[in-house]
Structures are given as C-alpha cells and as structure tokens.
Simulated scan of single mutants.
Amino acid sequence: MMSDPEESVRLQGFGEMTLRTAIATVMLLAPRERADAAIFRVRDGVRLAASEIAELASEWGIAPAAEIRSPRLVPDPHWSDVVRSMVREAPLPSLMVAFLIGVLVTRR
C-alpha cells in the first residue's frame, strides 16, 4: 500500500501528527513499547499493521533505536577519560582558577 509521509495519523498516547513523524517516534521506543504502539489513519480510522510500520520505516531510512543495555553491563569510565572530558568542557577562567588552587595546595 502506497503511503504519503505527510498523511495525518494519530499515534496512540502521543496525538495527531504526520505519518513520517509517527513512524520515527515509534522507532525510538523500546522494543516492547514499539510492539504495543498503534498508529491510526485519520481519514478512515484504520490501524496500521506492525509489518507495514516496519516496512515504511525501512523504506524511508528510519532505523529503530538501539537496544537499551543495563547500566551494570556498561564498563566504568577510566578516571583519566572523565578528567579529560571535564577539562575539555570547562571555560578557561575556571581552568586558570583550578590551576592556581592546585599550585597553592602543592606548595603547602
């Protein structure tokens, strides 16, 4: 079935939007929630099948979100990486103050 990406649909729990936006929203959901999601066409009230949603998503290049991993399975960051990222994001005046405090502390 040919579908217009700008067609008006209703995504259950999210409201009315375009078909492309609804499919992109569904693909961002977790797999269990994605299976329960329902998209209804506004013009005739017909519910899109899960296979049709998956087919349109692949046709339009919308990939499903990656599997969400348990925080216990994610490796702990190394402290050097943490400090490096903090320094990269810090503004220059705060870096200068931190350096001066470090000099004062080490001289004591």
Rank of each mutant, 00 (worst) to 15 (best):
P64N: 01
P31H: 06
A37K: 00
R47E: 09
A30R: 09
L73Q: 02
V83F: 11
I39L: 03
A57S: 06
E59R: 09
I39N: 01
S70T: 04
V46K: 09
S58A: 15
A50Y: 12
R32M: 12
P75R: 07
A37V: 02
D76R: 06
A66M: 11
L56C: 00
E52M: 14
P77Q: 08
A38N: 02
A49S: 15
D76V: 07
S70V: 04
A57P: 04
A54D: 13
E33D: 11
D36S: 15
E59D: 10
S70P: 03
R72I: 02
E33M: 04
A50V: 14
R69G: 05
A37N: 03
I62V: 00
V26H: 00
R69V: 08
P71R: 04
A65L: 08
R47Y: 06
E33H: 05
L28N: 08
R41G: 14
A65C: 08
I39M: 02
F40C: 07
A38W: 03
M27K: 00
A35V: 10
P31G: 05
E33Q: 06
A49T: 13
A54F: 08
D44L: 14
V74I: 08
I39E: 02
P64H: 01
A54Y: 04
W79G: 08
L56Q: 00
E55T: 12
V83I: 08
R32Q: 11
A50Q: 14
A57T: 01
A54E: 07
I62G: 00
V82Q: 05
A50F: 14
V83A: 13
E59H: 08
G45R: 06
P71I: 04
F40Y: 07
L28D: 13
G61Q: 10
D76T: 07
A54C: 10
L56T: 00
A49C: 14
D36G: 15
L56K: 00
E33S: 07
L29M: 05
L48C: 11
P71A: 12
P75N: 13
A63I: 15
R69L: 11
G61V: 04
A66K: 11
V83N: 08
R34M: 14
R41Y: 11
F40P: 03
W79Q: 05
S70D: 05
L48P: 13
A66R: 12
R69K: 12
R41N: 11
F40D: 05
P75W: 10
A57Y: 03
T25R: 02
I62D: 02
R34Q: 11
V46R: 08
A30Q: 08
V26I: 01
I39P: 01
A54R: 03
L73C: 02
R72H: 03
S80I: 04
A50S: 11
I68S: 06
R32A: 13
L48R: 06
E52Q: 14
S80L: 07
A38S: 07
